[in-house]
Design a protein around this nucleic acid. Structure first.
Lengths: 194, 194
DNA sequence: CCTAAAACTGAGCGACCACTCAGTTTTTAT
DNA sequence: ATAAAAACTGAGTGGTCGCTCAGTTTTAGG
């Protein structure tokens, strides 16, 4: 069971950082110490390996979000929004390769033809956006968030911002850390009741 | 000169939609009617072809932004911000393939080792973010935008949002059109003076 | 019409690709 | 200890890749 895990781990890093087509099975074999045949023994194809990685990624992300929100409680909806943004960015740092992978276009190409890819991606995005939506709806109930915004759509706009920040970091475009404070302030201004 | 252009056009579409590694020179040859040798006659390598595409993309995007902002004038900084967001999204629709290409990771991989890639990407991002920054600074002067925000960082947050929306559209994640109104409202709330 | 430059061709090359399979080693259960 | 199952191996296969190059066709100027 050692090599099976090693293959998955190394493949996650390489697929995320080098790309799917640019990572050869030969390379995976060299870096894991497993023969090429072993890779195909555990995962029937290179695409199958990618799907397994995506599966584990979904499991991990959705699991950690569920766990976090079960344990935590919040004084207000607005606080929940802020804490969720922090937690998202914390997770993106913790699972850097997986979040980088989620920004890779080949996943979305496969999901056009393979429903298993599609289902995993949808599960991840739905989980996150739904929690944002719940937070906004809760905030509108307790008065911490303005009733002028539409919860679902605002949740997507929030996600756009947070996910964009992660993309900045992953693509080495701008210093994401320096923007965190400004992003938080922007979200607060965007949602706060008067 | 006919085939040289055709190669560039077809390659732009395929690199953006299928990816760089997943597009073969053979395929480009078939779709353009040019022999494989012709492609290497005009562009010394596949990577050279990609660089030429990026070069034209930068030229086009920066050129159109400059032209737009030279011709237009705005009543306030806030209006300029709003119009720039509209124009960005308008351009992203007009040059769909080029904007999709800019979200492709292979460009950022090449830019780590090839300064010509880096320079083109920086020119594009600097152009857009600087105009956003100018708009915010102008708004702070004319009183339409709150002095509480830092122009440069807020410009990057704005860009995060707009670029994220384009990504949603390109990746077929959510209906970007339905989010436009909410995004605009979010930007206004985020920046408006009291 | 002539000629030189520019545009174009496609067979061929070595390298690499994902994947297979017949056989070996290791693990597990009895 | 033994046998069955699971894990693992790596040489081999057919195919595709980016790219070259010797030669042909088209274009442009005098």
């Amino acid at each position: 069971m050692k090599k099976k895990e090693a293959i998955l781990k190394v493949a996650t890093v390489l697929f995320a950082n080098k790309g799917f087509a640019d990572t050869s099975v030969h390379e995976l074999s060299e870096l894991t110490g497993a023969a090429e045949g072993t890779i195909f023994y555990h995962y029937k194809s290179k695409e199958g390996l990618l799907l397994t990685i995506l599966d584990k990624t979904r499991e991990s992300i959705v699991g950690q979000f569920d766990e976090y929100l079960e344990k935590r409680s919040f004084d207000s909806g607005m606080e929940m929004v802020e804490e969720m943004i922090s937690f998202y960015l914390y997770m993106a740092g913790l699972m850097e390769d997986q979040f980088l992978l989620l920004h890779r276009h080949f996943l979305y190409k496969y999901s056009e033809t393979n429903p298993e890819f599609r289902a995993n991606l949808e599960a991840i995005y739905n989980c996150i956006t739904q929690f944002f939506e719940q937070a906004i709806a809760a905030g509108q109930k307790d008065g911490s968030i303005t009733p002028d915004v539409e919860p679902r759509k605002s949740a997507l706009v929030l996600f756009t911002m947070v996910d964009g920040l992660v993309r900045f970091k992953n693509y080495n475009l701008y210093d994401a850390g320096a923007l965190l404070r400004e992003l938080m302030q922007a979200c607060r201004r965007m949602l706060q009741a008067h």
